[in-house]
């Protein structure tokens, strides 16, 4: 039963992940005044990359890097409940809690960082260093918000967090915490202005520099699923979770469109700018939000 549930969750995450990825490209094209590719374009890309005849590898650690990354993304999907009540689409979320999920989110990228480091390309490691430096500042406001949510719910379990939001969702209860978390969330989603990690011009697309063919395909697929997992987390933490599948689609979509539109109009911050920005305004928002708790 649990296995079927997990399988369904993965399927949904995969489907919605690619759909949202396609939508993202479409919507940002509209913002730019273009038409953009078809909705399934990202899916086509990933299939094409999977069937490339060659993929360059630099040894077993390089091979394992994207797999660890994808494993981390899959685990995130499995440990975050999709629906805020009942037994269906809960996956393994009863065996873990919010703190575990927060740390699982970093496990995949760290595994991938090992793969990136092992290929000996300095650009990849530059990207990783940027990412880790940015992470320092990115996590601070997010943690502040998450701590507020957990203290409010009196538990780190998702069920308790849903319970605490049954009357009024956290977005309305703690708007400042939501704002702090949302700014970090933009960064977690790799949206501008915090997308300095994979800058194609300066660091040759950063961590992804050496990944070709099936490895890059795996990275693309996991990033689609991982983005969906992050959307889910935000929905669960601040929008009260989803009552049913329709609600899930609606809430993730709203959040996703907001992130996309904001991401399409900003220019990129440098690493230092983004750290300094994140350490000031969102952190302050988070602290004030906590004080008001």
């Amino acid at each position: 039963m649990v296995l079927i549930d997990c399988f369904l969750m993965l399927l949904l995450a995969y489907g919605f992940g690619f759909l949202y990825y396609g939508l993202y490209r479409n919507l940002s094209a509209r913002v730019h005044g273009r038409f953009g590719p078809s909705l399934a374009q990202s899916f086509f890309d990933s299939v094409k990359l999977f069937v490339k005849e060659q993929s360059t590898t630099f040894g077993w650690m390089f091979y394992a890097g994207p797999i660890i990354m994808a494993t981390g993304a899959v685990l995130n999907v499995l440990f975050i409940p999709f629906i805020n009540h009942g037994d269906s689409l809960q996956g393994l979320s009863s065996s873990a809690n919010l703190i575990v999920v927060l740390y699982l989110m970093v496990l995949g990228p760290l595994g991938n960082a090992l793969g990136v480091g092992s290929n000996g390309n300095p650009f990849g490691v530059m990207g990783i260093t940027r990412g880790l430096t940015r992470l320092i500042a990115l996590e601070l406001p997010f943690y502040l918000a998450v701590i507020g949510v957990m203290i409010d719910a009196g538990s780190a379990d998702f069920s308790a967090i849903f319970e605490a939001q049954s009357q009024e969702m956290n977005l309305l209860k703690h708007p400042l915490l939501f704002m702090a978390a949302f700014i970090s969330f933009l960064g977690f989603m790799g949206k501008s202005p915090f997308d300095v990690v994979g800058a194609p011009q300066e660091v040759y697309s950063g961590p992804a520099t050496e990944f070709s063919g099936k490895f890059f395909a795996l990275l693309l697929s996991q990033s689609a699923m991982f983005s969906f997992a992050k959307l889910l987390l935000m929905v669960n933490l601040f929008l009260g979770g989803a009552d049913d599948l329709g609600d899930l689609v609606l809430k993730t979509f709203v959040l996703f469109v907001a992130a996309t539109f904001i991401g399409s109009v900003y220019a990129r911050f440098s690493t230092i700018q983004s750290v300094e920005f994140l350490m000031r305004i969102p952190t302050l928002l988070g602290i004030v939000g906590l004080a008001l708790l």
Binding site: R25, A29, H32, G33, R34, F35, G36, P37, S38, Q41, F44, D45, L49, T56, P200, Q201, Y204, S205, A208, T209, E210, F211, S212, F216
Partner: peptide, 19 residues
């Protein structure tokens, strides 16, 4: 970019030859 928007055909620029 917007004027001719070749992304409609599924053409995307990448930075590294590997991809």
């Amino acid at each position: 970019t917007s004027r001719y928007d070749i992304e409609r055909l599924g053409v995307v620029g990448v930075a590294t030859p590997r991809q």
